[in-house]
Design a binder for these strands. Sequence first.
DNA 1: CAAATAGTGTCTTTTAGACATTATTAA
DNA 2: TTAATAATGTCTAAAAGACACTATTTG
Lengths: 258, 258
Amino acid sequence: MTIPADATRFVEYSDQFLKNVAVDNVIFGYHEKELKVLLQQPYTLDKWTVTGGYIKKTESIEQAASRIAFDRTGLKDLYLKQFGSFGNPQRVIDKGFTPQRIKEITGFEIPSTSWIFDYFVSVSFYTLTEFSKVESTKGELEADSKWWPVSELPPMMFDHEHIINEALSALRVHIAHFPIGYELLPEKFTLPEIHSLYETILGKSLDDRNFTKKLLLTKIVSKLDETRKIGRHRSPFLYQFDKEKYEEGLKSGVALVF
Amino acid sequence: MTIPADATRFVEYSDQFLKNVAVDNVIFGYHEKELKVLLQQPYTLDKWTVTGGYIKKTESIEQAASRIAFDRTGLKDLYLKQFGSFGNPQRVIDKGFTPQRIKEITGFEIPSTSWIFDYFVSVSFYTLTEFSKVESTKGELEADSKWWPVSELPPMMFDHEHIINEALSALRVHIAHFPIGYELLPEKFTLPEIHSLYETILGKSLDDRNFTKKLLLTKIVSKLDETRKIGRHRSPFLYQFDKEKYEEGLKSGVALVF
DNA sequence: CAAATAGTGTCTTTTAGACATTATTAA
DNA sequence: TTAATAATGTCTAAAAGACACTATTTG
């Protein structure tokens, strides 16, 4: 077991942070037709959590989410979407903080009436990124940090399994109304690649003819005059996002219902 | 100016509540083809706020929202829908708490580093109710409490105007996918009545023939063998919600896109 | 019979969904 | 030439949207 850095940080730096409220980021990663989620394992238990952290008094909740996501992924400008907040007295049970435990570890005596023993409201965001862009997946404070397939999650702390499920629902609703893929695909990609991406996120297969028809109708991608040679079969054409249409879609919405 | 009850409560009861996080409820009321929102005016200023309150350590955020809504409306079993959380350092500016001010009023000396001078994250819910069902619209702690048309809001505190706009957007998305009206219409109502309700909430006019066609297709309302005599013109038939279909719609969704 | 509101049907366009064959590449 | 994958079009059914006349009531 590694150092219980969370507890230490709490005690030393707690004046910088808002109390009883925190941010959780569900970081989805797409890689080779699989949807994964970045989880970390705190010092306390054999259970896992989504990436999260505390909110500084000087920053907004969105800024906190962004800072925390950067700490975990090394990526700036991630599109973080708030999808809900979670809070109930049961949330505290798994936390692993007790006055005795903190004293053992840090030497500080904290009264059991302190706010750090009350439950935290989690303001939750999700984001999508290309798996391989993430360099430092390991937070300085956690024992371990790892990508897990959303379909095979390890035992989760608190209500974090529920939070991931809610994030996934929100994501699936979201991609019916807004373009995605810019951060997930190489600059030039093939129709089969973007097709697979949508299938993976939605968790179901999509008719290739109908998929192509609808996608091209939105004009958010445009065909290039190049192909990619990738095997003993017909070479697929390359496409790229039409930056302008894509940005417009982000603002005003684009129907891509499957 | 009335008693600054919020400040008093803060000081006296703050141990019961989570810190730096609170609930706000945007309570929409429908009455005579108008959509209104219940606002309260705290002691401090000539600005108004949506109804809100603090979260007890022993209750979930949903329970807090429900309790707070009951305090303001006297209604139980309101359908409260969480639509977002809001938090940034600017939120504190309007709050009207300063150490000096609290000392003047309550006699307590609170250090300026206390959490009560930091910003609060607002976990926000909206609900819809029939205007005239609300008896005690006045909270015990506020100077005044009043329904305002959503199109003519008074000067609002914090980011509460933004919160109301977000609530309205969420409501308009919501009614495209779930049945509403059960709490807003009399048990027996006419097609023109429910038609007006949808027009009011969506803020646009809807073709009567197409509206009726789609509504009846969902089977959530059924025609009765009675009419209501209301003037020197043809008497409209009465309808009522089909409880079973309605409940099912709440769970699984019902498309009513206009 | 006039004024007011309720009630209803048809046509057109658009969208969704099902479905199968031909084209290209390189071993 | 064959195995592998890419590319593409048509038909049908359902839904959305535009649009206007007839029915009933009572002063």
